[in-house]
Design a protein around this nucleic acid. Structure first.
Length: 227
DNA sequence: CGCCAGGGCCATA
DNA sequence: TATGGCCATGGC
């Protein structure tokens, strides 16, 4: 038996589960104040470094990278040197190249977040996705946490949590993303917190795939239609 | 020891 | 469209 997340009329209360989950998590954990970085550029680097890696490894890499943590310096850094610095994050050759690819794009905006923000949202997402090494999740992290655009980030944690709660999951990234976005206010702050809260919840209690019967979130989700 | 983490690309069918 | 191999470190 599975629960359906996104069936029915989107204007009925039956279709507000994503927002109910958000509300529960926010009340349980409080505001998270993400992304864990002290500058926009650090968020950009972190977004790439965290690909399929634990955050602890990103912190190690970031510590080594911090003396060079400005766009101009990273842009100047030889690929081999960059790879050496970010080694603890794993996949360091790939990621060094991906950072370089990203820098080529960012340079077109004169390393200015304000410049990028002038761009149309849809176009901006497409531009980011056109960079080799920037996939949908990484693009959405940048859109949300750097450029303040309200998007739902579909990561392994989000999939795992919704899966564990018994939802019949959309397979496609954008399908899942848009289904959730439809249920939340188009507010960057809400999406910012939601993603952070899902990560927090995942690290807290939802640490493995098998279904959890104790999670308090289940009582919220059980109000849903059964299939 | 083996498993896997806040992915993404590319080749193949 | 959908898998599978690949990239690589460090914690458990």
């Amino acid at each position: 038996m599975k629960y359906r997340l996104f069936d029915g009329d989107e204007h009925t209360h039956m279709n507000k589960n994503a927002y109910d989950i958000y509300t529960y998590l926010f009340n349980a954990y409080g505001p998270q104040g993400w992304w864990p970085a002290s500058s926009d550029f650090e968020i950009m680097m972190g977004a790439i470094l965290v690909q399929n890696t634990k955050w602890l490894q990103v912190e190690r890499a970031m510590t080594r990278l911090r003396p060079y943590l400005t766009p101009v310096q990273i842009d100047r850094l030889p690929m081999e040197e960059l790879a050496r610095l970010i080694r603890p994050s794993g996949f360091y050759n790939m990621k060094a190249k991906r950072i370089k690819n990203f820098m080529v794009w960012y340079k077109r905006y004169h390393f200015s977040v304000a410049e990028v923000k002038k761009r149309d949202r849809q176009l901006l997402r497409e531009e980011l996705l056109a960079i080799n090494g920037i996939g949908k999740e990484t693009a959405d992290v940048l859109l949300l946490y750097v450029f303040g655009i309200p998007v739902f980030i579909v990561d392994a944690y989000a999939r795992r949590i919704f899966e564990r709660l018994g939802f019949d999951m959309p397979k496609q990234y954008d399908t899942f993303r848009m289904d959730v976005e439809r249920q939340l206010p188009k507010d960057a702050t809400v999406h910012n917190e939601f993603h952070a809260l899902l990560v927090e919840h995942a690290k807290d209690v939802c640490t493995s795939v098998p279904r959890c019967h104790k999670c308090p979130l289940l009582s919220i989700c059980e109000q849903r239609i059964r299939t």
